[in-house]
Amino acid sequence: MKAETRKIRAVIFLLSLFLLVSRVSISASPLEYEVKAAFLLKFVEYVEWPDSLQNDDLSSYTVGIVGKDPFGTLLPEKIVSSETPSKTFNIIRVNNSEEACNCQILFFSNGESQRILDKVKKMPVLTVGEGDIFLYDGGVISFIMEDNRVRFLVSMKNANQAGLKINSRLLRLARKVLN
């Protein structure tokens, strides 16, 4: 019996060792935040920023993450899209409103930093958050979950306030558009 127990322990040990060294990251069914990250990068195709901002580089965007970062390695510091012409996304973690003002897109994870949102909501920044409350707090686009699918809401009022033009296709796909 002792020998058996030892063998079982050995197997468990090997199994745990294996777990630790193996690359534990394959994608079959995506995670909520993989899809949200994709949406975040897709939105730039459907939003027009005021001309003054797009004079130097039309294809480079700074995406700021405010508060706790739910994306982790999904959004590395720099992403260059594979299409032509390619777009470059610089992803930064934002801690204060100065950093926030330099972004074209700001993502607020659930319930984070009303302070920063208040600072940027009248600036040409696409603010993206989670839950319908986010739009009432001043955000432009908000993700909601419906039947395990990622959907989004758009506030035209807040988009106008930020001086952003939202493409009608995006508005058509939005679950709800608040005026």
Partner: peptide, 28 residues
């Protein structure tokens, strides 16, 4: 045959397709 997950896999999809992707909620 594992490979690393990447957001690139998903940006290739259209908005409509993305909206139809069923996600697991475990991340929360």
């Amino acid at each position: 045959n594992s490979c690393f997950a990447s957001v690139e896999n998903w940006t290739a999809l259209s908005l409509e397709e993305l909206m139809d992707v069923k996600v697991s909620m475990v991340s929360r």
